[in-house]
């Protein structure tokens, strides 16, 4: 009935949140250099182990040098989005939980989860996203891969599924930290785990591959989009991955509703 105005309201709300955090971020100029550019540098340096493997083996499980560059590009885009949008929001929300100021967030007349997931933003990490895009394009170009329209579509679809899975996972971590504040360290676990997203799916032993596809959908975020772009992924797999993400999202939403009901607010 009022869906369209609500959507407009949420758009305005998210814009206002982004504006606030950009204004805040601008207070810290040093962040631009330390976090943005060095983040990009680090994303690129991170390929080192992969290239050590290629150096010794010629190709890693059927992935040649340039294909690995595409994969690294996908990874860099994702980790850039993570550090620009999701990670700061998770950290800020956890600080709110710790200090008890989550009270104010929950008292605002809008969806608490939307408020939490948009409450902080680090614009300069978008540099990494740009860098990742450059890597993807360069890898495809130099590897002389012809990207078909369906490949591109499948790549975007799996990428979107991966991003959703990442968000769902972040929300689950946030919910866990409602229970025990120390579980905030899970974000570090999450960050460190993400690093394995650099590797092609085929490298992992079957058990880990299942784990990283269905439980911690790391590969959905990086390896599969790259494969889709390279035209190696069937639509069946794409649908499967979308289903995984959707399931995680539903789980995350349920966990959120439960957590808020059990919220006890920091000491009275």
């Amino acid at each position: 009935m009022r869906h369209v105005p609500r959507a407009m309201f949420y758009l305005r709300l998210v814009a206002a949140q982004l504006e606030m955090s950009t204004l805040t971020a601008l207070q810290y100029r040093l962040g631009f250099w330390t976090e943005g550019l060095l983040g990009l540098l680090w994303s690129v340096i991170g390929i080192a182990p992969l290239f050590v493997a290629v150096d010794h083996l010629g190709a890693v499980e059927g992935w040649g040098r340039w294909e690995l560059v595409v994969l690294t590009g996908c990874f860099t885009i994702l980790s850039g989005l993570f550090t620009a949008v999701l990670q700061p929001a998770l950290r800020e929300s956890m600080t709110h939980i710790l200090k008890g100021t989550l009270d104010y967030v929950l008292l605002r007349p809008a969806d608490g989860l939307v408020l939490c997931l948009t409450c902080a933003f680090q614009p300069w990490h978008l540099v990494e996203v740009l860098g990742g895009l450059v890597l993807v394009i360069a890898g495809l170009w130099l590897g002389e891969v012809e990207v078909t329209a369906t490949g591109l579509l499948a790549g975007l679809a799996t990428g979107a599924a991966g991003l959703m899975a990442l968000y769902a996972f972040g929300v689950l971590v946030l919910c866990a930290s409602f229970r025990a504040l120390q579980l905030q360290a899970l974000t570090h676990v999450m960050e460190a785990l993400m690093d394995f997203g650099r590797w092609p799916a085929q490298v992992f032993p079957p058990v880990l591959r299942l784990l990283f596809t269905f439980v911690i959908p790391l590969l959905v975020m990086t390896s599969y989009p790259a494969e889709a772009l390279l035209g190696r992924l069937s639509w069946g797999t794409v649908a499967e991955l979308a289903a995984v993400s959707a399931t995680l999202l539903v789980l995350a939403r349920l966990a959120w509703v439960r957590s808020v009901r059990g919220y006890t607010s920091a000491s009275s």
Partner: peptide
Amino acid sequence: KRQLSWDLPAIDNFEFNRVVYE
């Protein structure tokens, strides 16, 4: 506990509340 963002002038926070509370 404060609701105002530490690093910004209060007026920016007010403006934000204007959006949130429509």
